[in-house]
Computed example of a mutant assay.
Amino acid sequence: MDSKMEQIQLPHLNLPHFEPQLLEKEGKFWIFDALRKKQLVLTPEEWVRQHWINFLVTRLKYSKGLLAMEKGLMYNKLLKRTDLVVWNKSGNPYLLIECKAPKVKLTQKTIEQACMYHKELKTPFLIISNGLQHICLSYDVPTEKFTQENNFPLPPV
C-alpha cells in the first residue's frame, strides 16, 4: 500500500472487519463494490454500506443476488435513493438498510427519514446504522407499527 493510502483515516466500525479493495486515483480514494463490481468513491457512508454488504453476505449468509444498492423510489414527488435493499426470493422487498456516516448520530430525525423510505417499500425489517450503532426494527403491517429487535433478521426464504 502506498503512503497516501496509509494516511487515510477509516474508522473501525461495530461490524465484522474485512479488507476491502481500496485505491487512490484522481486525488480521491475509491472502494470496490462487490455487488456492482465497480469502484465507488469512498465516502464515510459508503464505508458503512460496504461493511454491511460484507456482513450480510459473509456472516449472515444472505445471497448476493438478492441485494440491491441505491434503488430509486418516489417520496413526496421527489426521487430518493435507498442505501441497501434485500429482496426475498419472490421478488418482494425484505430488508431496508439506511446507512449514515459514522459521525452522524442516530436520532429520532434519522429514524424518521428511514421510516419515510420504508413507507414506500414496506419491508418486514428496517435497519438504521452509522456503522457504530445499529437500530433494527421489524414492521407489523396490520398495526403499521415498528418493534425494536435485538437481533438482525435471518436471510429471507
Rank of each mutant, 00 (worst) to 15 (best):
95 L>A: 05
65 G>T: 13
119 K>W: 12
129 S>N: 00
1 M>V: 11
43 T>D: 09
29 F>W: 10
82 T>G: 07
32 F>N: 06
2 D>T: 08
7 Q>H: 08
74 M>G: 01
13 L>G: 05
117 Y>C: 02
60 L>A: 11
36 R>W: 05
103 K>A: 12
35 L>K: 08
84 L>C: 10
101 A>Q: 11
125 F>H: 14
84 L>M: 09
28 K>H: 15
53 I>C: 09
33 D>I: 04
103 K>C: 03
88 N>P: 07
115 C>D: 00
51 H>W: 02
127 I>G: 06
120 E>W: 00
42 L>T: 14
68 A>C: 03
130 N>M: 02
15 L>T: 05
31 I>Q: 10
38 K>L: 13
44 P>F: 06
19 E>F: 03
35 L>E: 12
66 L>T: 13
5 M>I: 08
29 F>V: 06
5 M>R: 04
45 E>W: 00
46 E>V: 08
64 K>M: 15
87 W>R: 13
28 K>N: 15
8 I>W: 00
104 V>A: 10
96 L>V: 14
26 E>Y: 05
12 H>A: 12
120 E>H: 03
123 T>F: 08
125 F>E: 02
41 V>R: 07
107 T>W: 02
125 F>V: 02
122 K>F: 01
13 L>T: 01
57 V>Y: 04
46 E>F: 04
26 E>L: 06
78 L>H: 13
12 H>V: 14
69 M>T: 15
118 H>L: 08
42 L>F: 11
52 W>V: 14
118 H>A: 07
99 C>K: 12
75 Y>Q: 01
31 I>T: 12
74 M>F: 11
63 S>K: 15
51 H>A: 12
134 H>K: 06
126 L>R: 12
66 L>N: 09
66 L>F: 09
17 H>V: 07
110 T>A: 10
98 E>M: 11
62 Y>G: 10
79 L>C: 01
123 T>Y: 02
88 N>F: 13
8 I>L: 06
52 W>K: 04
24 E>C: 05
65 G>R: 11
58 T>P: 00
9 Q>P: 00
75 Y>D: 01
128 I>D: 01
114 A>N: 05
125 F>G: 03
31 I>Y: 08
33 D>S: 12
37 K>W: 05
20 P>G: 07
82 T>E: 10
86 V>R: 05
78 L>T: 10
54 N>Y: 15
69 M>A: 13
72 G>T: 12
89 K>C: 11
54 N>K: 01
122 K>G: 00
2 D>A: 04
22 L>A: 07
22 L>G: 04
88 N>S: 11
71 K>N: 03
2 D>F: 02
125 F>W: 14
61 K>W: 06
53 I>W: 06
42 L>I: 10
101 A>L: 07
21 Q>I: 12
24 E>P: 03
64 K>S: 15
52 W>L: 07
11 P>W: 00
76 N>K: 14
57 V>D: 05
55 F>M: 07
65 G>I: 04
95 L>Q: 02
116 M>D: 09
104 V>P: 00
82 T>D: 13
106 L>A: 02
32 F>S: 09
87 W>T: 10
76 N>L: 08
